[in-house]
Each structure stands twice: as structure tokens, then as C-alpha cells.
Design a binder for these strands. Structure first.
Lengths: 117, 117
DNA sequence: GAGATAGATAGCTGTATGGCTAACTATTCT
DNA sequence: AGAATAGTTAGCCATACAGCTATCTATCTC
């Protein structure tokens, strides 16, 4: 069985890691409604600005958010394409599983007198 | 604007966090092919068993994998339903974004003489 | 140009995460 | 019963992460 090299998968690491935090998911929720400046994004959260900026950096590192400076304001936007990629990644395994003929195994396990579940 | 309470979102935290590691994603890839015992799942990885078990725990904590003991062997299986949930979570924002009338904004930004991208 | 505003950077801290070894439990095999 | 197999638990260590304050830069507004 192969080696599952983790060399080029760091992009996925960063993307999923970015999603693993409620604050960051909240930011995505806001951005789904449209572009927004940092200060407006930070508003709902009870944390210091530098802390919030770190979260934004994590989101950008994961490719989920991009931003550009407009004067002294930084405008952020959702990278929907990246979300789509992650969605597809998930779908791949979800469907591989569903496509399996484990339906039969399922049936057998469900009716196995030795089962303890 | 609301508060984005992070109280009940810890399930999503755990699930996405579980996906943020190449080893754990590799395990999902294996499980997509069908149920497998711990030792077989651990085989491709160059790490001590206890370390690998931790990864499995993270996957279970995230609801992505379930397991049951069959004698001294622990059989693991993919929780495709959970993957589907995550997929749906992502889709929600991806589509909210796409549905936006930001298409117009996009056009304006693309043709903005002040842009620096 | 002075002051306010928006964000960025540096540096510190506690906790979580990922890795290990050593030692232990529970099954199965002979 | 005794040895081998498959996990499990406990405990240690280094690094990464999320939070903070204090300070600094850049850009508007008067």
C-alpha cells in the first residue's frame, strides 16, 4: 500500500485548519454576504484586533479569503472557488464510500447476532 | 450584527480540525474503500502506534470515523453522513456568495482604474 | 501639519497538538 | 498455561496556536 506523502498536501492542511475555528467560520459567513473591510468583520468579536488579524491571515493562508488594500482600508472577499475545491475533496470520499458494495456488509453486520452495538 | 456564538459549534471545530492533517485524510481515503482494522490503517504510516491511535481518536471525535471492537481487533469505518454534513456546510456559503449580485461589483472592480492587482 | 483612523508588527504567555517510549490489558493461538 | 498479537494508557517533550499589550506605519480629515 502506498505512502500517502504529505508534501504537497499542506494547502489542504491550511484550508481545513482554517475552517476548524468558529471565529473564522463566522468571518466566512459574513463574507458570503459580500466584501467587507477588516474593521467591520472584526466588529462582532470580543477580541483584540491583532488577534483577529491572525485569524484573517489563517483564512488567507488557506486560500479561503483574499484581500486588497484600498487606501488605509483592507477589503476582504470570500474565495468561493476554494470552498468548491474543498467540497469536491470531501465528495470524493463520501461517494467512494457510498459506491462501495458495503451495502451488503452493512446488512450482514446489522443482523449479526454477535454484534454489540 | 449578531454575535456568532461559538458554543454549539465545537462539533464543526472537531470535524474540520480532523481534516486538517494529511495522515488523518489518508485514513479517510483508506476507509473509503471499506472497513479496516487499526493495524491495517496504521501500516502506511511511519509513526508509533500510540501516535496513530491519537489520530484515530481525533477522527472519531470529529464524527468522521466510527469503530467497534471485534475480539481484540478494532474495526473502523467511514461516517459518510458526517462528510455529507460538512459538504453541506461549505455549500451553504459557497452558494450564498455565488447567489450574490456581486457579479456587478466584480465587473466594476475588474475595470476599476484605481485597482492595483 | 496635527490629530484621528485603520491596520500592521513585535514580543510575550498559556494551552493544545503531535510525536515518542515504556508498561499494561485483553484476545487468540499452540 | 504460556507466548504472541492487537490495542490501550500514562507520562514526557517540543512546537504550534490563540490570545494579549504596546508600539509603529500609513492614510484621511481638518
Amino acid at each position: 500500500m502506498a505512502n500517502y506523502s504529505s508534501s504537497d498536501s499542506s494547502a489542504l492542511n491550511r484550508a481545513f485548519h482554517a475552517l476548524g475555528d468558529a471565529t473564522r467560520r463566522g468571518v466566512l459567513a459574513q463574507l458570503a454576504l459580500g466584501e467587507a473591510p477588516v474593521s467591520k468583520l472584526a466588529e462582532p468579536y470580543d477580541m483584540a484586533l491583532p488577534t483577529f488579524l491572525q485569524h484573517l491571515k489563517v483564512l488567507e493562508a488557506g486560500g479561503l479569503v483574499s484581500s486588497r488594500k484600498k487606501g488605509r482600508v483592507r477589503l476582504c472577499r470570500l474565495e468561493a472557488a476554494r470552498l468548491a475545491e474543498l467540497k469536491n475533496w470531501i465528495t470524493q470520499y463520501e461517494q467512494a464510500w457510498s459506491a462501495r458494495l458495503d451495502r451488503l456488509d452493512d446488512f450482514l453486520n446489522e443482523n449479526d447476532p454477535n454484534k454489540d452495538t
